[in-house]
């Protein structure tokens, strides 16, 4: 029977929704027993949140002053130690999980499966390759521990309603001092989080400048949406790097995605193909974005956006 350990992602004493998405993925494996581990200085508040996720049996807290920041080199030996009692170890395919989980796998002497989009059994999964242009079915050996990351855009967060027990775990692992946290700069925008927002408005190269990019923020605010950007817009400096949507940026699955002045390179499309409704506004009628759009409007964004904002009241 599968016994699955999920590494909780958290920041500022709050659980990241990616954890409930990992639980949702693990819950699709029949008969799986699901535990969540919180590595923190004081994991109690985060563990209390994790204990409420439906499907979680036990939450483990691993408290250590060295866990103040999520440094993969520091966390990996602890995750590997806790993993001893499990058949599977899952983390989210966010930058946190992508950084950490391969290091855990290598310490355990096994490979890693990246970006699970569906489980067809405890050792059979589907995942995207080639920027999502192919979906492969992969079988993992049953006699090895399976370390994997879960493609968060493929799963709805498991709902609340659980009441897991919370236990402190003692972990003895020697932790390195060769890696030190210096600083983190997060743009405090007051807007919804790009990865979890039900609505997203994204801007592309056609915006032309960071000043012009403000009309994307303006429309997003009107819709209560998060803001995203194409790689071209980020490379050109119109938008911050953490707004990039696509193969190498964020993979998102909002209810509504509005692509403004984005031509729709394959690498961008792979980041949005799970969106429920895609709206494209572009002045080039031949732009590939229209091939995936549910609603397309050919027009100059600098005329269309102010009109749209007005029409939305």
């Amino acid at each position: 029977m599968a016994k699955i350990l999920i590494v909780a992602e958290h920041a500022g004493g709050k659980l990241n929704q990616s954890t409930a998405k990992c639980v949702a993925c693990a819950s699709t494996i029949s008969g799986a027993e699901i535990h969540v581990a919180v590595f923190a200085t004081d994991g109690a508040p985060v563990a209390a949140e994790a204990a409420k996720i439906q499907g979680v049996k036990t939450v483990l807290t691993v408290n250590n002053a060295a866990n103040a920041e999520p440094l993969a080199a520091v966390l990996a030996p602890q995750v590997a130690a806790v993993a001893a009692n499990y058949t599977h170890v899952f983390g989210p395919s966010t930058t946190f999980g992508k950084d950490l989980m391969p290091r855990v796998a290598a310490l355990l002497g096994v490979g890693q499966l990246s970006d699970i989009m569906a489980a067809e059994g405890a050792y059979k999964f589907r995942r995207p390759v080639y920027a999502g242009n192919a979906i492969i079915t992969v079988e993992a050996p049953q006699d090895k521990k399976l370390v994997a990351t879960v493609r968060t855009a493929s799963f709805q967060a498991a709902p609340e309603g659980g009441s897991a027990s919370v236990e402190a775990a003692n972990v003895s692992a020697s932790l390195p001092s060769h890696t030190r946290f210096v600083t983190r700069s997060a743009a405090a925008t007051g807007r919804p989080d790009l990865q979890t927002a039900p609505r997203v408005v994204s801007g592309g190269r056609a915006l032309g400048s960071s000043d012009n990019f403000k009309i994307i923020f303006s429309l997003a605010d009107k819709l209560g949406a998060a803001v995203g950007a194409s790689r071209a817009a980020v490379d050109a400096g119109y938008a911050a790097n953490d707004l990039q949507v696509g193969q190498t940026g964020k993979i998102i699955a909002p209810e509504l995605y509005v692509a403004v002045g984005i031509s729709g390179a394959i690498q961008h499309l792979t980041g949005i193909k799970d969106a429920r409704t895609i709206v494209a506004i572009n002045k080039d009628a031949e732009a590939p974005i229209f091939e995936v759009a549910d609603i397309g409007l050919v027009g100059d964004l600098f005329t269309v956006l102010p009109e749209l904002e007005k029409a939305l009241g």
Binding site: V110, G111, L113, P128, G132, N133, A134, I135, I136, T137, V138, E139, A140, P141, K144, L256, K273, I278, V279, F290, V292, A293, D294, I295, G296, L297, V298, G299, V304, E307, L308, A311, L312
Partner: peptide, 30 residues
């Protein structure tokens, strides 16, 4: 190799969308 890839498939295609001709139609569609 530890993993065995048993199948390659193209991604699920999105259903064909509609083109609207102005903002009014866009808002109506939304």
């Amino acid at each position: 190799p530890q993993f065995k890839t048993t199948k390659y498939e193209p991604p699920a295609a999105r259903s064909k969308g509609v083109m609207v001709k102005d903002v009014g139609e866009l808002v109506a569609a939304l």
